[in-house]
């Protein structure tokens, strides 16, 4: 196949992508930096700085994303590490149990938490039955519920690549360390953990990017009381049409996501090298 036929294969998709993806994003960037009368302007960004609500939502988003990401690492690392040590059969079952939720609709997974965390839900009834609380604990429609839901939805994004990296670690390295007299704790922290670090860092960044743009879970589990950037954008587009402001915020979010993604790519290359 020569050069030009190679290009002919990608041409149809390229046309679609330019029309239905690249041009819309460029148009959005244009709205963020353009004013009909005056041309290029940063006015829409100045508007953002003046309104405290925007900064509050930004703070909310960063805080929730950070906590959800940390929770992801705290649950995901031990899970992936445990899966590595399982026998073949048990490991396949564990992989299936991680992959399946990954493909189930995010709405279903979010909705499930309403059922589990509600006042008459499983968690609250267990807590009351154990005598830990008298009144139901309020999990839903606050930051706690949103964070739990987000951590749950994103967990497979961390566990799967992390597990793939852990599987690649040669057992003989660990045996060599042991034969040289290193205690288990030292082997873990000095040999095993550093080998998993690039994959862990890459997975963490990926989860964090996805957190920043989360829309469904905060809308459903936050009940409108925990606005994140995406929900603010929804309001600016669908309720009080302020398209320029929405474009300006989207542009910031896009740049942040791309910068973090560049970091992710570097780490991911290192992890799979």
């Amino acid at each position: 196949m020569n050069r030009s036929t190679g290009f002919a294969f990608i041409a149809p998709l390229l046309v679609l992508m330019v029309v239905a993806f690249n041009l819309p994003i460029i148009y959005m960037l244009g709205l963020a930096f353009w004013d009909k009368g005056r041309g290029f302007t940063l006015e829409h960004y100045e508007g953002l700085l003046e309104a405290p609500v925007y900064l509050r939502v930004l703070g909310n988003t960063l805080r929730i994303s950070l906590i959800a990401t940390i929770a992801n690492v705290a649950i995901g690392y031990p899970l992936a590490h445990w899966m590595r040590g399982l026998g073949r059969r048990a490991r396949l079952i564990a992989i299936a149990l991680v992959v399946l939720p990954f493909w189930v609709s995010i709405l279903v997974r979010t909705y499930a938490w309403i059922v589990v965390l509600g006042n008459g839900g499983l968690v609250n009834r267990s807590l009351q039955w154990l005598g830990l609380t008298d009144a139901p604990v309020q999990f839903l429609y606050n930051e706690l519920g949103v964070t739990i839901g987000m951590a749950n939805v994103l967990l497979p994004f961390l566990v799967l690549p992390l597990f793939a990296a852990m599987i690649r670690i040669d057992d003989r390295l660990l045996q060599a360390a042991a034969s040289l007299g290193a205690p288990p704790r030292t082997i873990f922290w000095k040999v095993y953990f550093p080998l998993t670090l690039p994959a862990l860092a890459a997975g963490t960044l990926l989860v964090f990017i996805l957190c920043l743009g989360f829309y469904v879970t905060p809308a459903v589990l936050g009940g409108g009381r925990v606005p994140m950037i995406s929900n603010l954008l929804d309001t600016l587009i669908n309720q009080i049409p302020r398209w320029e402001q929405a474009s300006a915020i989207s542009t910031i979010l896009l740049i942040v996501a791309l910068v973090i993604f560049a970091g992710y790519r570097r780490l991911d290359r290192k992890a799979s090298a």
Partner: peptide
């Protein structure tokens, strides 16, 4: 990279860009 980017660009941004241009 361009073909894979809908996976990386937050979906809410794709939604807004498409809303505005459509």
């Amino acid at each position: 990279g361009n073909f894979m980017s809908p996976l990386i660009v937050p979906t809410i941004i794709v939604a807004i860009a498409l809303y505005l241009s459509l």
